[in-house]
Amino acid sequence: MKKLIMSTLIWGLTAGFSLAGSHSVIRMGTEGAYPPWNFVDDNGEVAGFERELGDELCKRAELNCEWVLNDWDSIIPNLVSGNYDTIIAGMSITDDRKEKIDFTTNYTQPDPSSYLAASEGANWSTGVIAAQSNTIQAAYIAETGATLVEFATPEETIAAVRNGEADAVLADDSYLKPIAAEDSGLMFVGDRPLIGGGVGMGIRKSDAELRDKFTAAIESMKADGTLNALITKWEIGETF
């Protein structure tokens, strides 16, 4: 009997410990295929703007963070199911998403989307426009007069413009810029529609404490200019 009480006590204690440190490790979910936001570098590590940002935020919020790769399509279901604690993957804050998860304050200004085409005269308004499926850009084109053609990965959307399958591709400006810079055959055309809001970290609705910690950390980085320095370094867009 004594033994039983002891073990219950120990069990209770350890359970108490793990509850107290319920966020001893924060798992950061990202896609790892969207440079310069997040990508896997030559060493097989998660790198990019959000890696540096996330590491700095964790330091300021005094959290112990770990990086996890997850497919874009299932990135929200896996968050609400508890397989990681935050999404930090260039995810724009939209009303649809806000119904399902919470966001920290935005850490970038709204990033305009751009049309990238293979010729100056490309018909970006009513022609064939490529976009990655399940993105805000795909939803946007479906409503314009253009013909939408959807591909599973961003890579394929660029390839579609190169080989003439699509007149242009619509994607985040910051994603297209380095590609346009290296390929003289591709150029920006047309409008730069502002589709999404700013980008923020996605966090479970039940995790308000964690959200506030990260929001506070982001605010402090905004205040002392370190966030602007990161945005400039990775050419993410407008600074704050």
Binding site: V149, E150, F151
Partner: peptide
């Protein structure tokens, strides 16, 4: 449509 061919106009 999942992996091979693009979907046109949804």
């Amino acid at each position: 449509f999942f992996s091979g061919f693009p979907a046109w106009q949804q």
